[in-house]
């Protein structure tokens, strides 16, 4: 328990010291969103119809930027080696790292998506569906992203995206449907998203541990 707490505060400290990790995805997300009305059309009807999909795609793309940071810095400065050599419980390390990364990179984007009611004319009555599905969906994406980041530690960043994006396809489909379709169908999609979350958390975190290990053999 003490370990959990101190490791958690260590991670939080790192992220709060280096604000570029947090601001980067936010700027990217806003720019991406702003380009769609300019590139496609500024017709409110059309935009509000496309909004859920656009928000989801932009969140995924912004996620690509942040997955790099989950393990990379610790790998570069050697702290990851230390955790590994000192036989820390890697499961706890991985889970905490992913969760803190989610708090600092995905949570701001979720809050920003509320703005889309104005920017993309997203229907207000569906906002709660969107936020709910984003909460679960971004968590799953963080896990897939962590795996992609762990596999491609020290390699080029395009590779990590090429691994993460196809894996995230179910999240994209379920999440954007949850925010598109009427409220009678939403429980279905939310339940499935939750199921996917509970399914991927253990499997992906174990795969992550394996992926980290292979860099030390």
């Amino acid at each position: 328990m003490i370990f959990l707490k101190s490791f958690f505060s260590r991670e939080v400290l790192i992220y709060s010291k280096k604000s570029s990790n947090v601001i980067g995805p936010v700027i990217f997300f806003l720019i991406c969103i702003a380009f769609f009305p300019l590139a496609i059309s500024n017709d409110p009807n059309e935009l509000s119809r496309l909004a859920p999909g656009l928000i989801w795609i932009c969140i995924l793309l912004a996620g690509m930027l942040s997955i790099q940071t989950i393990f990379k810095e610790d790998y570069d400065d050697g702290s990851l080696d230390l955790f590994y050599v000192r036989r820390f419980s890697m499961l706890q390390v991985v889970l905490i790292k992913i969760f803190v990364n989610w708090i600092f990179t995905a949570l701001p984007l979720i809050l920003l998506s509320c703005l889309m009611v104005f920017l993309l004319y997203f229907p207000l009555e569906k906002l709660l569906n969107l936020i709910g599905s984003l909460f679960i969906g971004t968590l799953i994406i963080s896990f897939f992203g962590a795996l992609a980041g762990a596999l491609s530690l020290g390699r080029n960043s395009i590779l990590a995206s090429a691994i993460m994006l196809p894996l995230s396809l179910p999240v994209l489909i379920l999440g954007s449907s949850a925010s598109t379709y009427s409220s009678e169908n939403i429980t279905f999609f939310i339940l499935l998203l939750l199921a996917l979350l509970f399914f991927s958390v253990p499997i992906i975190s174990i795969a992550c541990i394996g992926a980290i290990r292979l860099h030390y053999e």
């Binding site: 992906i204 795969a207 394996g210």
Partner: peptide, 24 residues
């Protein structure tokens, strides 16, 4: 050796994910 290990992990995770993608 690391390459083999990395693709093994990816191949397995992908195989778990494919049915989910199809169903979704």
């Amino acid at each position: 050796k690391s390459a083999d290990q990395a693709v093994s992990i990816l191949a397995m995770v992908g195989a778990v994910n494919l049915p989910i993608i199809k169903k979704s």
